[in-house]
Design a protein around this nucleic acid. Structure first.
Lengths: 143, 143
DNA sequence: CCGCATCCAACAAGATACTG
DNA sequence: CAGTATCTTGTTGGATGCGG
């Protein structure tokens, strides 16, 4: 996942120097982070009160290796806290920092979008599996 | 179970029909989609008015193979439209459907979060506008 | 047992070259 | 310009195994 960094490198400064608009510049880091697989789901699980490693792994059907890796990243980002609750048997509780909890707004927006996206217009796709063609609906406007 | 090869035209509906549990929320499909690499950045670019293939590729430092793949996928999801503007020389304009534009709210929330997240903790980076070292603080893991 | 590290197969993304 | 073909590299995730 380090490919892009080599080229684009430090996004914030580079974009400023390049004269890019603040619109895009500030959040390429956030996009990259949120666009990393499982991060959204993990945060969602934590927001919903799940705190244990294996709980989350089972909930998301995620193997332990990847989960451990993601949690470590999230910890380094200051989004997740790791608390050792019990030494033996090992009991660890994961939770969100303030910065992590601030993502609740984002996740909430995503939920709203998901409902909208599944609701009005994505209804006739149900005949999947067979034809395989997924999108045939009339599409609307262009930016 | 393999969450791996989801790349093949796996739509939102495919996901929940495949047995994604609504346990933690009913939008795991949306999480999966938004959590797919490059999708957020591509949508952001489109929202910001970029319409051309090479434009987007350069903006994101993304190679053409992956960009083509992602755009095709986004088209199948009904989020992106591909319009042929000129046959020769080939001129194609990409844009967002209504469903895609509805993501503006989500991206906007992400921006807000990014500002907040960079604010209190990564002040040094934001403070200076001219060149120099990119990130002292570890928040921007980009890479 | 629980959390996590290590090894390894499978797949996704990058670089480059090439077509219309 | 907008892709496709192909080869190479990097990342992901399952199996396994270990320390506590």
């Amino acid at each position: 996942m380090a490919h892009r960094g080599d080229k684009t490198a430090c996004t914030l400064h580079d974009r400023w120097e390049a004269g890019a608009e603040p619109d895009y510049s500030d959040c390429s880091a956030a996009y990259h982070f949120l666009g990393t697989r499982w991060n959204l789901q993990i945060i969602s699980a934590l927001l919903n009160g799940y705190t244990r490693f294996t709980e989350i792994a089972q909930l998301l059907n995620l193997n332990s290796r990847t989960l451990a890796e993601r949690l470590k990243h999230l910890e380094l980002e200051g989004i997740v806290i790791r608390q050792v609750r019990n030494p033996i048997p090992v009991r660890i509780a994961y939770g969100l920092t303030a910065k992590g909890q601030a993502l609740r707004e984002v996740l909430s927006e995503i939920q709203k979008w998901a409902v909208y996206a599944d609701g009005p217009e994505a209804i006739e796709v149900i005949g999947k599996k067979n034809g395989g063609s997924c999108a045939e609906r009339g599409i609307l406007q262009i930016g």
